[in-house]
Simulated assay, not measured.
Amino acid sequence: MIIDQLNEPVPGTSLLSTPTGDAYTDPEIFAREQAEIFEKMWNCVLREDALASPGQWKTVSVGREEIIVVRTRKAGIKAYYNVCRHRGMRVCTSGEGKSKTLQCGYHAWTYALEGDLVAAPNLTSMPDVDRQEYGLKPVHVRTWLGYVWVCLAEDPPSFDETVLGEVSTRFGEVESIDNYGIEGLRCGETKTYDVAANWKLIIENFMECYHCATIHPELTEVIPEFADGLASQRKNGEIHGASFGDDVEGFTVDGSSGVGSLPAIAPGQDRKYYAITVKPQVFINTVPDHVIIHRMFPVSHERTIVVCDWLFMPEVVEQGLDVANSVELFHRVNQQDFEACELTQPSMSSKAYERGGALVPSEHHIEEFHRWWAERLGGDVPVPAASAAAAVSGT
């Protein structure tokens, strides 16, 4: 099978083959990813506290669709396709707002926050119109870790298996992440990055640390073991927290102390960094005094929006404590990583990368990601026709 070929060792070497460059440049492959991955899996779209009161709504992009996420008066948070059921105009034409109802600006079809059609010109003269049937088309919603997660699939995959299962793989048990009390944390800083690179390059970068000694001087000062090239995400679900350096006081840009440890973390989580990839678009990073969460929103085969939140104890945010050194460390890591991805993207269309590249042994978990990606697309994906060694030699 193609998937097996993708993960076979390159003959005569310890290297593994990668997908071919087309996987990162072909708009048709990107469209398949949107349909088979992002539109069928759970996506983390926004913080729950961004919709603090009934009537508040935001629009978000999931795959090729635009979704309204709204806090209702009766049913908590709901989500709908941003499509009027009359003639298809966008119901919400800005990114956010607050209103008692959701009204299309074309013909004034009006919907309750709970989704039902409640008013329209001459609607009373059409008693046969089912107001639920012609209400906004709903999307599945879950809340977890203080975030809103949505799934566009008619029959969504198990949240426990596909989201909580990813956490179990990295933490050993879901309960371990509960020690950080993420639901109760507050956002101290949010930064949005517009990255000129394919979403898979960003995931691959996050999952490995073979590059850390080269481009992350601040990070390897705080976590010296990263300079050895092994990431905190390990093969086959090995549980590993990367330890701070002996003289490092906190996860900050200069190694100085942070803002005090979160109250419920376990002894084994003290002075350690853990990283989790929740496919297809979330990175969770935990350290003793704060949590960093990335959400990715692929825009095209060569552009990805990444939103990064730094979460702290409520009193840290409310008292205006200085978190600049904490934020600056991962902000620099983000900038360094995204620049590397942007410098990689153009080469994906080069003749020198037609047959793909290679993975070294410490990048074994990227192999697992490639296998997952190929399976999600049904195995019919571009893989090397010859070995990576042959591609490098040009034969």
Score class of each variant (00 low, 15 high):
V299I: 14
P288Y: 09
I37M: 13
Y80E: 00
F283H: 08
G379C: 14
V62M: 03
M348G: 01
I215G: 01
P224R: 10
E66V: 10
S256H: 07
H290W: 15
R87E: 00
C308E: 11
V316H: 02
K235W: 14
P157Y: 09
V278H: 00
E183N: 13
W109Y: 09
Y106A: 02
E173R: 08
T18R: 03
P384N: 02
V163A: 04
V91I: 10
T110C: 11
W144P: 05
Y193G: 04
G12F: 13
K98G: 10
E318Y: 03
Q336Y: 09
F330S: 08
G184N: 13
K58V: 13
D380H: 09
A213P: 00
I366F: 00
Y147F: 15
C341D: 13
G146P: 03
E225R: 02
E218I: 01
R90W: 05
Q233W: 03
E315G: 02
D228C: 07
G181M: 09
K235Q: 12
D116C: 08
Q5D: 14
S94A: 11
F171T: 00
G76A: 08
N7D: 14
G21W: 02
T93V: 14
G21D: 04
H211K: 06
P9N: 14
V118Q: 01
T124N: 12
A153R: 08
V45L: 06
I37D: 00
I37W: 04
G21H: 03
F369I: 00
G55F: 11
A108C: 14
H331F: 12
L185W: 04
Y106E: 02
N205W: 03
E328Q: 14
N285R: 12
V253C: 02
G268R: 11
R271S: 12
P263R: 05
L123S: 11
Y210Q: 01
C308Q: 10
S176Y: 11
M313F: 03
L117S: 04
V253Q: 00
V10M: 10
A264Y: 08
V333M: 08
V141F: 13
C44M: 14
A231N: 15
S256W: 06
L321A: 06
I292R: 10
W57G: 04
V141W: 09
K40N: 07
G250W: 08
T110Q: 02
D322C: 10
V327S: 01
S53T: 15
F38H: 07
S347E: 12
P280C: 02
W109E: 06
S393W: 05
L16H: 12
D247G: 08
F297A: 11
S158C: 10
K235T: 08
Q34K: 12
A213M: 05
D155K: 15
T304A: 05
C308V: 15
V70R: 05
K40E: 06
C92H: 02
L123N: 04
A374Y: 09
G135I: 00
